[in-house]
């Protein structure tokens, strides 16, 4: 698989940046001519990953979050959300549906949604060093689309 395009943005872990992050990812993915459902899935997964960093990686401070995107020549979109915050003690536990250490506005469904809405999800975390979430989704070829 060859990379045909990429982006990288960095922003502080302010909740007002959640909508910015998913909009950037959606604009980047638009090059692959996704269906509305595919675009909705990508926006949702990115929103969940970025929100996790904002809520859990930096609970008491504002830290740096990086969002990277790559498009491969087989119509696959890769999104990587990275933070340098607290890290996750038990990744398997954090990925269980309904498990949350967040506040009353969290539902514990973040990783479950990322896993279901994307084809691949990889979570790498190290305590005190941060977390990297890598997601991939291969988009459908539609008649009339470039490629």
């Amino acid at each position: 698989m060859n990379t045909v395009n990429y982006i990288k943005i960095e922003f502080p872990s302010k909740s007002s940046n959640e909508s910015l992050a998913r909009s950037v990812a959606a604009c980047f993915a638009a090059q692959l001519d996704p269906t509305l459902d595919e675009l909705g899935d990508i926006k949702t997964a990115v929103s969940e990953a970025v929100t996790n960093s904002i809520v859990h990686a930096y609970p008491d401070v504002i830290g740096k979050i990086s969002l990277r995107g790559r498009i491969f020549d087989d119509n696959t979109l890769e999104i990587v959300v990275q933070d340098w915050g607290r890290g996750i003690e038990d990744v398997a536990k954090a990925m269980e549906p309904m498990f949350t250490t967040g506040g009353f506005e969290r539902s514990g469904m973040g990783f479950t949604i990322m896993e279901s809405f994307m084809d691949k999800l990889k979570v790498k975390s190290s305590l005190g060093k941060g977390t990297t979430v890598t997601m991939r989704r291969r988009l459908s070829y539609r008649s009339g689309s470039l490629k």
């Binding site: 909705g40 949702t44 969290r106 539902s107």
Partner: peptide, 13 residues
């Protein structure tokens, strides 16, 4: 036009 899992928490509340 959009909600993520935070919307689930809103409806549950």
């Amino acid at each position: 036009g959009f909600m993520d899992s935070s919307g689930i928490a809103v409806l549950v509340k």
